[in-house]
Structures are given as structure tokens and as C-alpha cells.
Design a protein around this nucleic acid. Sequence first.
DNA 1: CTCTGGCTATAACAGCCGTCATAGTCTAAC
DNA 2: GTTAGACTATGACGGCTGTTATAGCCAGAG
Lengths: 194, 194
Amino acid sequence: MTKPSPAARERIVAGAADMISRRGLNATSIREMAKHARAPLGSTYHYFPEGKQQLATEAVRHTGEWVARRLRKELEAGPVAGLRAFLALWRKIVVDSDFRAGCPVLAVSIEEPPTGETPPAVVAAADVFTEWESLLSASLREHGAGREEAAQLATLVVAAVEGTVAMCRAKRSIEPLDRAAEQLRALILATIKD
Amino acid sequence: MTKPSPAARERIVAGAADMISRRGLNATSIREMAKHARAPLGSTYHYFPEGKQQLATEAVRHTGEWVARRLRKELEAGPVAGLRAFLALWRKIVVDSDFRAGCPVLAVSIEEPPTGETPPAVVAAADVFTEWESLLSASLREHGAGREEAAQLATLVVAAVEGTVAMCRAKRSIEPLDRAAEQLRALILATIKD
DNA sequence: CTCTGGCTATAACAGCCGTCATAGTCTAAC
DNA sequence: GTTAGACTATGACGGCTGTTATAGCCAGAG
């Protein structure tokens, strides 16, 4: 092996996730992803032989796991702390990028493929959403929420965050996220029983 | 004039909104929009001399007003009825398209332009979100909700719907929307005072 | 009838797209 | 010191992109 650089591969994935979160999947070219990661175009097809779809899939999973790790850790202190961390995480992304970046998982979800089948990247996006919901839902149940109640609330939290992030980008303001946050916090407090 | 067709222009706008809601803005070419509306490419630049940005802007506004009209009408029966109609509207779009269509306003919101300035289509998207929120918020206040409370809840509803629609598309399931709907309904009932 | 002007048809432009193929480089193991 | 194989460099392919220009049509106004 040339370099001990499995770092190159990961750099490409992380860069792809960032670019997709800003411009969407279809508007992000492989050439730009490569350049953004300071990797040659050839390397892209070396690491990801299945091309753009594979790269997108891995970018989605990369983001999904990164968020899930953070969420898992913060949820140890309870659902309210978990929610706060979840909100803070996205708030930072939106604000630090000057309202230019969002969630790559959402971006991939809303770009229909020409084909009739569900592309792997969209399947990965669905899995990521489900995992985030599961983490929140489990924590809510541990704190006294009913099964159905917990599932509904978890879905609402994920959906509301994804939605507000997009609204914040359109409005060039963090207000939507902060407003929804208030309601979500109150709702969780009213749902858990301790 | 050749035809008494001011219909052509509107057909292009409506078609553009539909295509953008499925594939995103950047992945939808002007040629495809024209073909989808059975209009010649030349007509596109005749009706929309400022090109793709103008077409996207009008598509966003078209969708925004269409939804706002429906919302305004149903809100006459109160916030709960308004919410139900809002949810039903998006539910129909998602289900009827077999999870392939979503919201063009969201799609436009999350595709950053290369330039430093906010493109007109994104500004239009922000305005649309604000209008939907205003309608909901006003109705909530008419039914006893406080100013801040109403604004927060209105933002949460819009964000949650936009988010769930995307989640439904990724998962190829209507469940996320229906789950969030339950929570939103309960939340509104608990907030209004009559 | 002529003529005007909204609309269409067609072609061209420069440039980027995803993908592939090839030849080359350079390190680590033998 | 040789060799294998992971990585890079380069260039090409057909096709699609947004946009513009130009010439043509064809209904209604005068």
C-alpha cells in the first residue's frame, strides 16, 4: 500500500456529506467532491467502484452514525438533554455555515431517481431516520412514556428538526428552529413521567 | 395571438412545481419542464426571460398560494380542522405519487446557490413558509392561544409536515406523517382554549 | 388586404456531467 | 532487488446543461 491513509477514503465521504448537505445530491458532481477532499478523481472510483450512488450512500450513513453517536451519548442524561443536544447539533451546523448547510440525509431523501426502484442512498436515508427515532423513542419509554406515545413523539422530533433546518436556511434565520425547540421541550416534559 | 392560451404559462409553472417536488431544482432541466408541459423550449424563455431562477420562483409561489388558499378556507372551521386539511393535502400528494413527490418549497430551500446572495427562489420559499405559519398562527390566536405560543406551534406544524413528508418518501411509508399528525392534533387541542 | 407582434421552431454555444480505460507511480513484502 | 498491488494521473466518450440567436409562423387589428 502506498500510504497508511485510510484517511483519504473517509475524507472523501465526509466532504461528500458536507457538499450534499449544501447543494443537494444531483447538483454535487463527483469531480467537485474529489477536489473538495483534495483527492484525485481516479481515487473516487477506486474507493467507490459503484460510483456516485455508493458515495452518496456512504455519505448518508456517515452522517447518520455521527449524529447517532452524539445522540446516544447525550440521551444517557435523559430525553430532555438528548433533545437539547440534538437541537444544538443542527443549530451549530446551520449557523456556522451561515445558513448554507443542512442535513444530507434529507437532501438525499427528496431527490427521486429516474428508475422505478428505490436507490440504495434513499434506503440508507430511511434507515438513518429510523435509527434516530429509535434512540429517542427508547429513551422516552425508559422515562415512562407509552410505546405508541414514544414512537409518535420521536418521529415528531426528527421531522420537526429536519423541517426547521430547511426553513432556517430559506429564511436565513435561526428563529424557526428555536421556536419549534420550545414546543418540543414542553411536549417532552409533559410526556415523560419523572 | 395564436391561441387564447394564457393557460400555457400556467401549465409550465404547475409542471415545473411538480417536477421540482420530485427531483429537486438542480436535477430538473428547463428542457424537461417544457416537454412535461408540452410546450416548446423557446416558449419557456419567452414567458420567463430571466430563465430557470424565475421559473423556480414562480413555481414556489404557485405552490405556496395553492396551499395557502386551501389552508385559509379550512381554517374557518378552526385550527384543528385546518391542521387536518393541511395534513390531508400533503398526505394525498405523497400517497398519490407513490412516495415520489414532496414539497417543491422545501426542495428549493435546501439547494444552495454558488453565489453569495440569496437567490429569488429561496426568498420566495421563505415567504411561503412565513405565510403558512401566519395563517396557522392567526387561527390559533383567534381560539385563545397566546402570541408566542401560537407562533411556536405554527412553526412546529409547518416544520413537522415538511419533515415528515421527506421521511415518508425515504421510507416509502406514510407512517411518519400519521404518527406526527397524532401528536400535533393533541398539542393543538391542549393549546386552544375552546 | 397588409401588417404587427405574440408565439414557435431550430440550431448553435461553451461547458460540465458520470463513467471508463489506460498507463504510470511508488510502497511494502518477499 | 525484484515484484505485486494499492493508488494516481490523464484523457477520452457521449450526452445533457442553461442560455441565446435567428428565422418562421399565424391570428387578429387596421
